[in-house]
């Protein structure tokens, strides 16, 4: 008889990549619900369409690369990319735009580097940035809350019929960016729809994502380091550069924490292990970097929101962060940092 030869350890823990991905999907639910409640079924429609597209792209590329299709489709990473993209893109974005974002995310964000685990950039953010730069008009078309119904939305997405004028509305970040003369209070007074903190809508969505993120943190899907770093840095930066409610104000710390894609970024994007730093210390630095960059671009850059750019920039810096944040190995006096190349 020949018993199997298996390397130790024979016992294994219960966490599995697939389950991690499933939990991430579950954690997006509050945000998805908030978006749907505020803006109608656009995000949901996008999500379904993009999931299908992402799986299709993934299967096609795997086939092309002669990898086991069923095995890798099952890991759920394509689905997570699609869902995160769908949550980040404006609801009612036309179908070809979402398709393009999806394609770029899967093909150029992930598979050109060797597939799951090999990509230096966050795939969802790659797809997002590509469409943001290519189709700025469509990308700024966020609907006003409770403005669009299911059928009209579908027609808009499919490009059959355009929505009536005025359905879209500049976001609070856009308005703040474009503002030249009004004080903050005046600005808010002019736009009652913005609500209280991060802009009506945005603040609820951000709070929902925060809830999902805390759920994941509780389930120990990731450490607190990266999100805390990002939110902390963003908070500090906005506090530091907050000059009251002048007309050239950059907005309050709360405004920054609860508007745009802050919470989505902090809990769903910055925590991406593949493209981030590897050690806990590194992740803290990574998160801080993202937080600072988000504020810098929002306040002084050319775009109203900046999570995608900040994340991609920090992705570039991740290997360097790893380089300087290697832990001290047991029995060594100090950590050997940096890579030894040759002799």
């Amino acid at each position: 008889m020949a018993l199997p030869r298996i390397t130790s350890p024979h016992a294994t823990g219960s966490t599995r990549t697939r389950q991690v991905m499933q939990l991430v999907l579950v954690a997006t639910l509050p945000g998805l619900l908030a978006l749907t409640w505020l803006y109608g079924f656009g995000t949901l429609l996008n999500l379904l369409w993009m999931s299908a597209a992402a799986l299709g792209f993934e299967a096609a590329v795997l086939q092309l690369r002669q990898r086991p299709v069923g095995f890798f489709l099952g890991d759920g990473s394509a689905l997570v990319t699609a869902v995160l993209l769908a949550l980040a893109l404006p609801p009612y974005a036309p179908w070809w735009l979402t398709l393009t974002a999806c394609g770029f995310a899967i093909l150029f964000g992930k598979h050109v580097y060797g597939g799951l685990g090999q990509n230096p950039f966050n795939p969802a953010m790659v797809g997002y940035v590509v469409v943001l730069i290519s189709f700025p008009l469509e990308m700024t078309a966020w609907p006003a809350p409770h403005a669009v119904g299911l059928v009209e939305g579908l027609q808009q997405i499919l490009g059959i019929a355009a929505l009536p004028d005025g359905w879209s509305q500049a976001t609070a970040l856009d308005v703040r960016k474009a503002n030249r003369s009004l004080t903050m209070d005046e600005l808010w007074a002019q736009n009652p729809a913005f609500g209280y903190l991060g802009g009506r809508g945005s603040e609820w969505v951000n709070l929902a994502f925060l809830a999902g993120g805390l759920f994941m943190l509780r389930r120990r899907l990731f450490g607190w380091h990266a999100p805390a770093g990002m939110l902390g840095a963003l908070f500090l930066m906005s506090l530091l550069f907050w000059n009251g409610s002048d007309s050239d104000s950059n907005g309050s710390p709360l405004f920054h924490l609860l508007s745009g894609a802050t919470m989505l970024g902090a809990f769903f994007i910055v925590t991406d292990p593949v493209s981030g730093a590897t050690s806990n210390q590194g992740r803290l630095i990574f998160g801080i970097g993202v937080g600072i960059l988000v504020y810098v671009i929002r306040a002084w850059g050319g775009y109203p929101d900046a999570v995608a750019f900040a994340v991609l920039l920090m992705n570039l810096a991740a290997p360097t962060i790893d380089y300087f944040s290697r832990p001290r190995t047991y029995g060594h006096r100090k950590a050997e940092r940096g890579f030894k190349v040759g002799d």
Binding site: T7, R67, P68, G70, F71, F72, G74, G117
Partner: peptide
Amino acid sequence: KWDLPLPPGRLIASDRERAA
């Protein structure tokens, strides 16, 4: 000595059955 494991994703026949 132990063999270096195959890179993930290169499945051997028995793995294929399990993955399916």
